[in-house]
Simulated scan of single mutants.
Amino acid sequence: MWTFLKALVLVPIAILAVAFAVANRQVVSISFDPFSSGAPLLSLTAPLFLLVFFLLSCGVVIGGVASWLGQGRYRQAARRNGAEAREARAESGRLRTELDIQSRQNREAARLAGASAGPLPALELHDAH
């Protein structure tokens, strides 16, 4: 189901991207020299669609990094909560083990106390006349 939905969204986007690339094949000059517009020191010529795709990709990466940095406190809280949960599980296991040991010791002590006391005295029933 997810594969179908992905294809339903991604196929039209891919068709639009290919159509954009075919329609914008003209070569443009990209200058990195803000002081000399006639003969720039740093310039690059590339098809327009490559420039647009490159800038779009840069925007996605910058947005992803900004989002990742902005969520740092949540990742830190998740790590802290996970560590506390692991410690609580370990303590719970340790306490259960201690409780089991104590319970066994109490049963054993009760069994030994019952065996050393001897048989229970018989109850005498009296007729009330």
Results as ranks from 00 to 15, higher is better:
residue 2 W to H: 05
residue 3 T to Y: 02
residue 3 T to G: 06
residue 4 F to S: 10
residue 6 K to D: 02
residue 11 V to A: 09
residue 14 A to D: 01
residue 14 A to P: 00
residue 14 A to F: 12
residue 18 V to S: 09
residue 18 V to E: 00
residue 20 F to C: 09
residue 22 V to K: 14
residue 23 A to E: 11
residue 24 N to C: 13
residue 28 V to C: 11
residue 29 S to K: 14
residue 33 D to H: 02
residue 36 S to H: 07
residue 36 S to G: 06
residue 36 S to K: 10
residue 39 A to P: 10
residue 40 P to M: 01
residue 43 S to V: 08
residue 46 A to V: 15
residue 48 L to F: 14
residue 50 L to E: 13
residue 51 L to G: 06
residue 54 F to H: 06
residue 54 F to N: 08
residue 57 S to E: 11
residue 58 C to R: 02
residue 58 C to M: 09
residue 61 V to D: 08
residue 65 V to G: 07
residue 65 V to S: 10
residue 66 A to D: 04
residue 68 W to S: 14
residue 68 W to R: 15
residue 68 W to H: 15
residue 68 W to V: 11
residue 71 Q to C: 08
residue 71 Q to I: 02
residue 75 R to V: 13
residue 77 A to F: 07
residue 78 A to W: 03
residue 78 A to C: 08
residue 82 G to N: 07
residue 82 G to T: 11
residue 82 G to K: 05
residue 86 R to K: 14
residue 87 E to D: 09
residue 88 A to K: 09
residue 90 A to L: 04
residue 95 L to E: 12
residue 95 L to N: 07
residue 96 R to W: 05
residue 105 Q to T: 15
residue 106 N to R: 14
residue 108 E to C: 07
residue 108 E to W: 04
residue 111 R to G: 06
residue 112 L to H: 07
residue 115 A to N: 06
residue 116 S to M: 13
residue 122 A to S: 04
residue 125 L to V: 15
residue 129 H to F: 06
